[in-house]
Design a protein around this nucleic acid. Structure first.
Length: 304
RNA sequence: CGCGAGGUAGAGCAGCUCGGAAGCUCGCCGGGCUCAUAACCCGGAGGUCACAGGUUCAAAUCCUGUCCUCGCAA
């Protein structure tokens, strides 16, 4: 079975690598366009492009898929597989050949672009992966298979993504085999129970210390890759990569920084957020001990 | 040439404006104190100050170029 793969970020890379290593033949990949990025605004390709090229796969980057229907008709493939591609597929494309999708949530929950972050943000204890038929509607196609995954307290976006991508790959390969021998079963989603998740905006990462510590910790976990939970301290941007609920016996106002020799806290609504790993503008990401060793606090802090 | 910050002991930083024998916090090694400790006390090792040129009696510090890292914007 010849597969045309659609996907762009890390999640897609893991799935693509697995497909390449499998018995199925990947005939090409479609991903988002190169974008000006970083200092100097140099044009940067998605990381998955190098994986594809290293395996000799043709890479297709189309601005508008609907303008390239003829191009797709000329590609020799049997089935399209999508995994975090990042664009809606037009009906004209879906009509060419069948298409299935790997979605990292228990559909119909969390349809949309940010299912992994949403599960963490909401403090869910259970998530999973769904393999489903790709339709014109957003993540609303019939389900082939679904599997649960427990979210551990120490999971963050990166660890959960890794687990879900690997689970998605495994389920995808199983589904492909069933499709090949014609034993696949389709179950419609219960559309009444559908929930949708939106794209994350940069300002969503700003930590509001009048929120609960649990909520703040969840934000840190969900946004660790992007936009990264952050706050401002005496004019400096501080990004928080790892944090937990902290215990310390002091009285402080919401948003107040409490500094110990080796620990750093911020007073939140119902307790203290203990910062374990963070980064100031211009600096590297540091464990809190290294951060405290050199950082010059320009704001009022409680020093213990 | 999008804007900006920075490269100084294993780690994080100060020193650079106003050149003149390299410092702080932590870690590490050794010793002490303690029921005990991420605590405290004493001692110690560890740095061609990113690289290359230049100015100078003298450069981490001034000038020029190169490499690398990071924040913002997109």
């Amino acid at each position: 079975m010849k597969i045309l793969f659609f996907g762009t970020p890390r999640f897609a890379e893991i799935v693509l690598q697995g497909l390449i290593d499998s018995e199925f033949e990947v005939v090409g990949i479609v991903c988002q366009n190169d974008k000006p990025s970083g200092r100097g605004n140099k044009l940067v390709s998605p990381h998955i492009v190098s994986l594809a090229k290293a395996n000799g796969l043709p890479v297709y980057q189309f601005e508008k898929l609907s303008q390239h229907i003829e191009d797709f008709k000329n590609i020799d493939y049997d089935l399209a597989v999508t995994a975090s591609y990042g664009k809606i597929l037009p009906k004209a494309f879906l009509d060419i050949k069948p298409c299935i999708n790997v979605h990292p949530s228990l559909l119909p929950k969390y349809r949309g672009a940010t299912p992994i972050q949403s599960a963490l943000l909401n403090g869910d204890r259970l998530t999973g992966v769904t393999i489903m038929k790709t339709e014109v509607g957003m993540d609303d196609g019939d389900v082939f298979v679904q599997q649960n995954l427990e979210i551990l307290p120490e999971d963050d976006y990166l660890s959960l993504l890794e687990k879900l991508a690997n689970m998605g790959l495994k389920l995808l390969l199983e589904t492909l085999k069933k499709i090949e021998i014609g034993t696949v079963v389709r179950t419609p989603q219960n559309h009444e129970e559908a929930t949708f998740v939106k794209l994350i905006k940069k300002e969503d990462g700003l930590l509001d210390f009048s929120e609960s510590t649990e909520r703040l910790v969840n934000k840190v976990r969900a946004y660790v890759e992007s936009p990264v939970a952050h706050f401002y301290l005496g004019g400096d941007l501080i990004k928080v990569y790892k944090a937990q609920k902290g215990q310390i016996d002091v009285t402080a106002e919401v948003g107040q920084i409490i500094k110990e020799k080796k620990r750093l806290f911020v007073k939140a609504q119902d307790g203290f957020l203990e910062i374990l790993r963070c980064q100031a503008s211009g600096g590297k990401v540091l464990n809190v001990i290294d951060f405290l060793n050199g950082y010059h606090f320009k704001a009022m802090v409680v020093d213990r």
